[in-house]
């Protein structure tokens, strides 16, 4: 087990290292930011000075080494646009994004699993078919368009929910959270629902497929033949078995949700990392883009590790590998 974890960690480090290289090279292909930042009447000397100030006059491999050396110490450069260190800029925005992503994931699970179970247990009922039809719709609806429609209905026509910003926040351990105030919660609802919609559909389909496969298994029929109540058969015997694929996918999807929050944050002006990324991409603010990518790479690697651990905790067949008689 320890060897396994160590190997996974080494692999993860390798991925992070590979990504620094890819990210650095990729981002350097983006046009020269100097062209945007300098004033139009700047002459050649002024241009060279700007390059030097931003460290862009060095050859590419030297730029990378400098970047790597600084990255290890947590310095990912200063934002070209506003001149503050990029890493703290991103980290400061992170709680907002995580709050949004986790809320969306929470919605996906508490709505998706019960609906998916219902559709799986009663596939031919009206409710079951409606749920599946709805999930196809949820799968097909483009996130950004749904966001616009949510704003149109709830903010413009009904005027019941705010459509921009985080609203009132409270500090918990130095982190600002919207979810704990009524106003903040109202601001959170639309973007979270928007972000969750696709994932709800995904969880419904996964759960339904899992239920349909599990209820035909002998052990479910045997559980019933032993006289267990239907509630226990479904909530323990069926649910525990389908939790394995659902947890795996939900965990892996968390990274995707964080990435897709780029869209929801842009639409709802949610001040998270995603909105910062789009703004920085438009300004060709290289250090901020790099910092965003490095942070997300780290997050994905950590998420993947956690999912692996959870996976083994849920499935005894993997956990106790080698212990079988």
């Amino acid at each position: 087990m320890i060897i396994y974890v160590a190997r996974r960690l080494a692999q993860a480090l390798l991925v992070v290292f590979a990504m620094t290289l890819i990210v650095f090279l990729g981002v350097n292909v983006i046009g020269s930011p100097v062209d945007i930042l300098i004033s139009p009447d700047c002459n050649q000397a002024c241009y060279q000075a700007s390059l030097k100030a931003l460290g862009l006059d060095l050859p590419l491999h030297q730029q990378y080494l400098v970047f790597l050396k600084n990255a290890v110490t947590g310095d990912l450069g200063k934002s070209f646009a506003i001149g503050v260190p990029a890493l703290p800029l991103i980290v400061e925005r992170m709680p907002a994004t995580l709050e949004l992503a986790l809320s969306a994931m929470f919605l996906a699970i508490v709505i998706g699993i019960p609906l998916g179970m219902w559709a799986g247990l009663k596939p031919d009922s009206v409710a079951g078919k409606t749920i599946m039809g709805g999930s196809i719709l949820g799968f097909s609806l483009p996130t950004f368009w749904v966001g616009l429609m949510l704003i149109m209905v709830f903010a413009v026509y009904l005027g019941v929910l705010p459509s921009t910003g985080r609203g009132e926040t409270v500090q918990v351990f130095g982190v600002r959270l919207s979810i704990l105030t009524l106003d903040g919660l109202a601001h959170l609802i639309l973007p979270a629902v928007n972000l969750a919609l696709y994932k709800i559909s995904l969880v419904i389909r996964l759960t339904r497929a899992g239920v349909r496969e599990t209820i035909t298994q002998d052990y479910v029929k045997f559980a019933r033949a032993r006289g267990l109540k239907a509630r226990r058969v479904i909530l323990v015997h069926v649910l525990k078995n389908i939790m394995i694929p659902v947890v795996t996918v939900v965990g892996l999807e968390l990274g995707n949700v964080i990435a897709f929050s780029v869209v929801s944050e842009t639409i709802f002006s949610w001040p998270g990392m995603g909105k910062l990324l789009i703004d920085s991409l438009r300004l060709l603010d290289r250090p901020v883009v790099v910092a965003y990518l490095m942070i997300t790479v780290l997050m994905f690697v950590v998420i993947n590790l956690i999912v692996d651990v959870l996976y083994t905790a849920l499935d005894p067949r993997i956990r106790l590998q080698g212990a079988a008689i």
């Binding site: 991925v15 983006i30 990274g255 897709f260 780029v262």
Partner: peptide, 20 residues
């Protein structure tokens, strides 16, 4: 595996930012 561990939308955003 490396490619699939990254969300498509992010990869596409980066590429388009680079390519124009």
């Amino acid at each position: 595996d490396l490619q699939l561990s990254f969300p498509t939308v992010l990869v596409a955003l980066m590429l388009l930012a680079a390519l124009g």
